[in-house]
Design a protein around this nucleic acid. Structure first.
Lengths: 213, 213
DNA sequence: CGGGATCCCTTAGGATACTG
DNA sequence: CAGTATCCTAAGGGATCCCG
């Protein structure tokens, strides 16, 4: 692979050689949420050509970032310890990019995995510490997320289930997290749709998860 | 630019759309050290085709990451405030990649700018706090670096000048920073060549700048 | 001489179809 | 379901040339 070779010897060059190819960091993003099967990755990255997904998975594996784990008959992809060390980098990079998200174009989607990482990056433990433990259920077109906040600890997982507040949202939810919209504005404009629970809890959600522009 | 469009709406996708293209993060890396002219960037990135450098500079400018600043007659490229916010991300990514740097291949070079960023990432303020203020002059094939440590503050600039310890080094210096080699081993094996000053200060250097594998 | 633009060729990536 | 195989286009690599 001479093409991906930058001819330099330092940490950043090495890093971009490992995870700098197109789509690679988005695969890492999704795997940070949890182990995924090939088809799940493909579903979360609808625009990735299947041959590119296959190529990237092999490259990331060769790089020691991910691992193929055969579970009974099916194959699961998961991050190695080294790959998981990318978490702070990915969260920081995500926050950086988040600040200049404009308005979503029609063809742009927000997947549950992307939202899970956004929430991890936007989590403010120092704010959550003084709030009651709360669980949220968030529905996206693709899948659901179970978010539970208890003191300074956060857990975001895929799935559905009972929660103190359940809501549905799309890409527009970034305006709630950036503070551009308040909680009741988000509900009024339909950016967030209340499914179940106390609507007042959406304010708590917005306090807990915030990225300043 | 449909090709660089991932069809998703979240922070990481946005970030890789802004700085995820080939060479882009290496340009940011060098500009984090200081403003640079076109030719300086090209010299620090010897393998980048000139048309790609020109394209990237335009893209990064359009993305609001860098800015063209005409200084009298010459043009200087520098990071915007938004671009400078990438510093912690770039340092963290560099440290991540640093951990799996193998041995340098013959054609791999270490530029002064890359080393400057490596040092910023490897700086341990909590260690430096209890050490005397020290200045180092480091020579690379490409250029020199003036490093000065005073308490928890670090400054790394390009240039030459008087320093408490002056040394010359190449890519192999990563083995000193990783701790694979001790200071006197680094001198004995020629990885670091003493130019001037007290050789014992190289041990202090290795304590001050360290990235664990 | 700095700051690019142009040319041609190679390779990676996108779209789609197909297979164990 | 988990990938290969194929074909085509667009981006990147390398050298050279241009312009103020």
């Amino acid at each position: 692979m001479a093409a991906r070779d930058y001819g330099q010897f330092d940490g950043i060059t090495r890093a971009v050689e490992l995870v700098g190819e197109r789509w690679a960091l988005l695969i890492v993003r999704d795997l940070l949420v949890g182990p995924r099967r090939y088809g799940e990755l493909a579903a979360g990255l609808p625009r990735i050509p299947t041959n590119i997904l296959a190529t990237r998975l092999k490259e990331l594996q060769a790089a020691g970032v991910i691992r193929r784990a055969p579970r009974s008959r099916i194959i699961i992809y998961e991050l190695t310890d080294y790959g998981r060390e990318l978490e702070p980098v990915v969260l920081a990079l995500g926050n950086w990019g988040f600040k200049t998200l404009g308005d979503p174009r029609d063809e742009q989607i927000l997947t549950a995995d992307a939202m899970a990482i956004t929430l991890r990056g936007a989590f403010r433990p120092e704010v959550a510490a003084s709030l009651p433990a709360t669980s949220y259920g968030a529905r996206f077109s693709s899948a659901g997320l179970l978010i539970s906040v208890d003191g300074t600890s956060l857990s975001v997982k895929r799935g559905d289930g009972p929660a103190d507040l359940a809501f549905a949202a799309g890409p527009g939810i970034h305006r709630l997290i950036s503070g551009e919209l308040g909680a009741h504005q988000a509900l009024a404009t339909g950016v967030v749709e209340l499914l179940d629970g106390d609507r007042a809890l959406l304010g708590r959600f917005a306090e807990t998860f915030h990225v300043a522009a």
